[in-house]
Design a protein around this nucleic acid. Structure first.
Lengths: 95, 95
DNA sequence: GCAATATTTAGAAATTTGTCTAAATATCTA
DNA sequence: TAGATATTTAGACAAATTTCTAAATATTGC
């Protein structure tokens, strides 16, 4: 897993909002972008960053390109975060 | 908790390395910086970002300023991350 | 108080990032 | 095939970020 790509991807609020929005289920780029006040081109850029970090998956469905969350990453992601703190190894403290 | 500050802080590899290094215990700025090939001024900048995100604490000890991990944030941090994914509420899937 | 050490602040330069417009590519439908 | 819709790519530009050097601040010990 590309740690740097992932953290970088999460650093932008628009991208986090995109991930949030995808919790509701897969969505086309246009549908997804309707919630944001930036151009499709800018959106596309954000999608690319998320994809590079392997946080989302894409599938062309006819005219549309459908985005979905890559949920398998969540575990790695959680590990990466916890790994930044002590006692994060085996069932961290405080649990 | 300032979500944006935290994610932004974690986006830089040097800052993540600093956090990692602090896992070994509290350390003065100089000691901490010895591991990196950047000037004290640049280091200081990174410290400021980490502090703003409330990820580290500082305490002056004589001439030195000692940095330590703010471990209490780990739970919030984990929550923020998991919150970006579905089924993140109660003991997510795949566990 | 003064010199030495530790760290931060200020200001500038280089790089990266987010956004835009314009153009390109892909698919659908008439 | 042509036109309409959906999305991405290319190139430019402004804003943010990382880094540097030089100077400022804080503390220790003589």
């Amino acid at each position: 897993m590309k740690q740097q790509e992932v953290f970088r991807a999460l650093a932008d609020p628009t991208r986090r909002a995109i991930l949030k929005r995808l919790q509701g289920g897969a969505m086309s780029a246009g549908e997804l972008g309707a919630a944001f006040d930036i151009t499709p081109a800018s959106l596309s850029h954000h999608f690319a960053v998320l994809k590079q970090a392997d946080l989302v998956r894409t599938e062309r469905r006819g005219q549309y390109i459908v985005y979905s969350l890559n949920s398998t990453v969540v575990e790695d992601l959680a590990r990466m975060v916890l790994d930044l703190f002590p006692s994060g190894g085996a069932r961290g403290g405080k649990r």
